[in-house]
Structure formats: C-alpha cells, structure tokens
Amino acid sequence: MPRLLRALTIATVLGFAATLYLGLFAAGTDIQQGAVQRIFYIHMPAFFGAFTAFGLSLFGGIMVLAGKSADWDKLALAGVEVGLAFALINLLTGAIWARPIWNTWWTWDPRLTSAAIMCLTYAAYLMLRAGFDDTERRRTFMSVYSILGFVTVLITLFIIRIVPETIHPVIVGASPQNAQGSFEATSGVMLALAPSLLLWLTLMPITLMWHRYRLEDRLESLNRAKLKALSE
C-alpha cells in the first residue's frame, strides 16, 4: 500500500470517528424530532459523498472519451461503486429517519423519487458493464453511460428548485403545534454538520475509491497473468 494511501485511510477512519462523536454526542438533541435527527449528520453528507464519487466517475468518463489513458476508466468504475454505496446509505438513513418523523418509510416525493432513480441508474451501470466482453468497447461505452447517468445526479440536486412541492426539508423545520413561529430546535448543528460534510465530500470517497482502483489494477494484472500462463 502506498504511504499516502495508508495515511489517507488512517485519516478517514479517525475523521469518521470524530464526526460520529460530534454528531452523536457533541451536538444537542433536537427537542422537536428527538434523537433520530442525528441521522441527518450522516444522511446529508452521504449524498454529497455520492456526488463527489459520481462526479469523479463523470470526470473519468470524459477523460476516456477525450482519448486519455485507459486508467481513467478504472477511476470511473471506482466512483460508481463507492458512490452507489453512499447513495444507498443516503436512501436507507432517509427512510429510517422518515419512519418516526413522517410516519412512513417511503413517500413518492420528487426528491426521494429522483434519489432512487439515481441509485437505479448506477446499479444499471454495473449490470451493463458486466455485459461487455471486449474491454476496449466496454471502456468507451461505459464512459458514455457515466456521462448520461450524471444527469440523474443533477436532477436530484436541483429538483427542490424545479419542483417546489417536495416535502423534503432543507433543514429542521418549525413545530407543527407552535403557532407563534419557529424556534431554535437544536444546538450545534453546524458544529456537527460542517466537519461531517467535509469528510464525506473529500476523504471518504477518495480513500475508498483509491482502494477500489487498486483492486481493479490487481484484477487486470491477474487477467494478464492468466493470459500469459495460457499462451505459454
């Protein structure tokens, strides 16, 4: 393992532990939503982590199509796999939060629907990728697909602005019973959210993707070794 990757891995694990501490203990309990509001410190950063990963995947796709090194395809694949895991965390934690707060696991709200579509799109990426035998063709075609797929990420991000009827909160809302206006429900939201957001935006996806990239490298060298052994 390269030294830098080892350092990154350690930093990510420590950072994750620190943001968990901040979110679970340092921030105050939301007096309105109760303890479950703390899921938010994972839920929202996980989406932005997926955004980084899918964004890097888009970037890898563009580089492949621009005729750059074939290694960019490995980056795209790593981005899809890690991003899909993050998007899944985003969906799951959202559903678990919604159960006590909205009284339902799932609702066909525009934002939730588009997030689910995003997940399906990248799940389809992995399936489609497995359908190609020719690696060179696969590289080009999957790059095309990763560019198309990123449209669903953008739609998920901007759908609140396009379709304002969403019930998905921007941040903790006002009390349903409090007719006199809103109030400070939680203390230390930004204290817990900002570091977590930063971690999921940068360290988490980069470290995990690097590990995935190395795995793909090794897989390729295995395939080469197999071919060599067969031809001998």
Binding site: S114, I117, M118, L120, A123, A124, M127, L128, V151, T152
Partner: peptide
C-alpha cells in the same frame, strides 16, 4: 430496458 429505464424515468 435495464440500462435505459432509470435514465428514461425523468
């Protein structure tokens, strides 16, 4: 259909 439906959902 599998590859296209998610992209076509919008």
């Amino acid at each position: 259909p599998v590859a296209m439906m998610p992209l076509a959902l919008p």
